[in-house]
Design a protein around this nucleic acid. Sequence first.
DNA 1: CCATGAAACGGACCCGGGGTCCGTATCGTA
DNA 2: TACGATACGGACCCCGGGTCCGTTTCATGG
Lengths: 198, 198
Amino acid sequence: MPERSERPERKPRADATRNREAVLAAADALFADCDSPEAVTMADIAAAAGVGKATLFRGFGDRTGLIHALYEMRLAPIRRAIEEGTPPLGPAAPPLQRVSALLDAVLCFKIDNRHLALALEGTGGDSPYAAEHYERWHGTLQAALERVPGLADSNFTAHALLAATRADLVEHLVGREGTTREQMRAHLAAFTARVLEP
Amino acid sequence: MPERSERPERKPRADATRNREAVLAAADALFADCDSPEAVTMADIAAAAGVGKATLFRGFGDRTGLIHALYEMRLAPIRRAIEEGTPPLGPAAPPLQRVSALLDAVLCFKIDNRHLALALEGTGGDSPYAAEHYERWHGTLQAALERVPGLADSNFTAHALLAATRADLVEHLVGREGTTREQMRAHLAAFTARVLEP
DNA sequence: CCATGAAACGGACCCGGGGTCCGTATCGTA
DNA sequence: TACGATACGGACCCCGGGTCCGTTTCATGG
């Protein structure tokens, strides 16, 4: 009896995908207006989505997985712009400009998605540095830094620059101290300029 | 009947202080050799100290309080060296040297007390930027930066430089990737030099 | 349009950890 | 030594993440 591995794939169920969307939407909304990410519980999300708790865990594995899915969803456009976009974000940009553009993009993303970034980095268990999206940011940034003349330590420098965009720092400055989005961008730009220019 | 607020203070009980020491020692030891801080539970600490759980909470308020007490204990000497020590760490040092010395001190402390720093910054609930010890680091560093000629944004710059010494970053580089203590110091020194020098 | 089995559902349930309560043991003082 | 205050400890509560299983709903083939 031959293996039937050759795509007997039946269509995915309609309610499953519908529920997945509902969960993502509900979670996004809940995280959006809450003081701190750990204030929103899995049961809350399930209730808000009109779904049983098990559906959450079946669809996303665990809490981290759900947040991760939300995060990647929002991140996808920026990711594309970086990997195959046009300068200054795309790969064709001259190194110096690209580093600045990269960091500015990260910062803007973190500002616009404070809740998610905070929820993700604040997921106590695993450090942010183990996540693959951080690896991507770091890898791309390091590659760009490598092409900057007179700059050793591209590895550490990439880490240090990214550290300036940490979610809780952004939350502290923007959310708590009322720093403007544009002020933040200016500050970060000035800082990176100082690091890059000899 | 006059208020008896004028020091009717009786001597603190011997067992109380003894237990406090035992708890601090036990907690320190447990945090020292564990993969991740949240792996060590309050019950564990109580058991290791030969004490009831309630004693922990009576003496330190909550988990954060206990970790905080440990942290401040270790931090005290460095704090003194900064506030009333001799250059390059003390207040009399020229700004540029002091900034470098300050950051180096923070880094060394975080390396030598990774467990504690990680436990403290990783205490999900409250962001590290709300803690008063961070306020102190930041305040001192900002003051020093203020005296560096040609450097605007001393506030943000202080945050950004301190971000390069975040506990989980240190843990990642030193604990996971095997970076040497001296390598870390060199990297950070080079990075800050780039930021400071025009 | 209906029978069928696979896939998804949902909420009761479990577990582990932070934090509390209160009867009891211990200490400092007179 | 007697006494009141203080600290003790472990049983207990609560809440949130994660699981189990009987039931429901869908896609498919007739």
